[in-house]
Amino acid sequence: MTLSVREIDTPQGPARVHVERPARGASLRGSLVLSHGAGGGVQAGDLVALRALVDDGWTYVRVEQPWRVAGRRVATPPRTLDAAWVPVLAALCRGRWALPWPLVVGGRSAGARVACRTATGVGADAVLALSFPLVPPSGGPSRDHEARLVLDAGLPLAVVQGLRDPFGTPDDVRRALGEAAAVYAVRGDHSLGRHPEDVLVAADQWLSTLTQ
């Protein structure tokens, strides 16, 4: 495994990417590019646990949004997150940094929303959503339409959701998205921090279906 960290310029300021690649000579399965939530960073337990996928042939990239790199505590508006994410993916998919395909994009919470909204624009082959914030705990409209953008484009979508997630349980997500989405129920709430190994097992199981 090799780890490299670099910054990529975006219209919202520099983003930081943590790129981990399988050892030289390993059989490559594809690339997984994930971003963090609206109040956390790339050291979230579930995002860290997924580093183990590198040993299974996946190139794994954790993306720090510009607001996080700048030291802010709370995310900027959704449109600015999308505006930063798209050029980051473009930079990762060309030149000497080009990632191996298939390209799976995603993230946790707000990062999952960004990936769903931009999946077709960045040329993704599939989307992995961790703790998708289906409905705000304080009330408000469902965000299922963002996840449906992925399904309507014919792309595989997996949602890994905590059994006690106040933003929507796995059953809530299943009812909202139907059978087209692969929904994995894991222990925990929205943070998924106490049992990140469950997230790894679910992600590995789903990713295996993409490369069979």
Rank of each mutant, 00 (worst) to 15 (best):
V63K: 01
A84V: 04
C93H: 11
L81I: 10
G39K: 06
Y60F: 15
G71D: 08
A26W: 06
R72C: 03
P77L: 12
Y60D: 10
A83L: 02
G71M: 07
H36P: 12
G41S: 13
L89H: 01
L50K: 04
G41Q: 06
W67A: 03
G57Q: 12
D56T: 07
T59M: 06
A70T: 01
W58M: 05
P77W: 09
V86S: 01
S31A: 14
R68D: 03
V86F: 01
V69W: 03
A52Q: 14
T80E: 11
H36Q: 14
S27A: 15
D82F: 09
P87F: 11
A84T: 06
L89I: 02
V61D: 11
G25V: 08
G30S: 11
P87C: 07
L28H: 14
E64W: 00
L53T: 12
Q43S: 11
V61N: 05
L47W: 13
L53I: 11
L81T: 05
A23G: 03
D55H: 12
V48L: 15
V74F: 10
V86H: 00
A70Y: 01
P87H: 07
G37I: 05
G71L: 04
T59E: 07
D56Y: 03
G39T: 14
R68N: 10
A83H: 01
G45V: 07
A91R: 06
V42K: 04
G45S: 15
W67V: 01
R29D: 12
P77Y: 05
L28R: 14
S31K: 08
R72T: 11
R73Y: 10
D55I: 02
R51E: 14
A75W: 03
P66H: 04
R72D: 15
C93Q: 15
G39Y: 07
L81Q: 13
T59S: 13
V48N: 04
D82Q: 15
V63N: 02
L50W: 06
D55S: 15
V63P: 00
V88R: 00
G40Y: 12
A38V: 08
V61E: 11
R29N: 04
W58R: 14
V54K: 02
A52T: 09
T59A: 11
G41E: 09
P78G: 02
V69T: 03
P87Q: 08
A38D: 07
R51D: 09
G30L: 05
S35I: 05
V61R: 03
D46K: 15
R68M: 06
A38H: 06
W58D: 12
A91H: 10
R24P: 11
D46P: 13
R68P: 05
V69S: 01
A70R: 03
L89C: 05
Y60W: 14
V74A: 11
P78Y: 10
A49M: 10
G40C: 14
A44W: 08
H36R: 08
Q65P: 00
R72V: 04
V42I: 15
L28V: 14
C93V: 13
T80V: 08
V88H: 00
A44Y: 06
R51S: 15
P66C: 08
V61C: 12
L89P: 00
L53M: 13
D82T: 10
G40L: 09
P78E: 14
L50T: 08
D56M: 05
L89A: 02
L32F: 04
L47I: 06
A90M: 00
G25N: 07
G40S: 15
L32E: 07
R73I: 13
D56H: 13
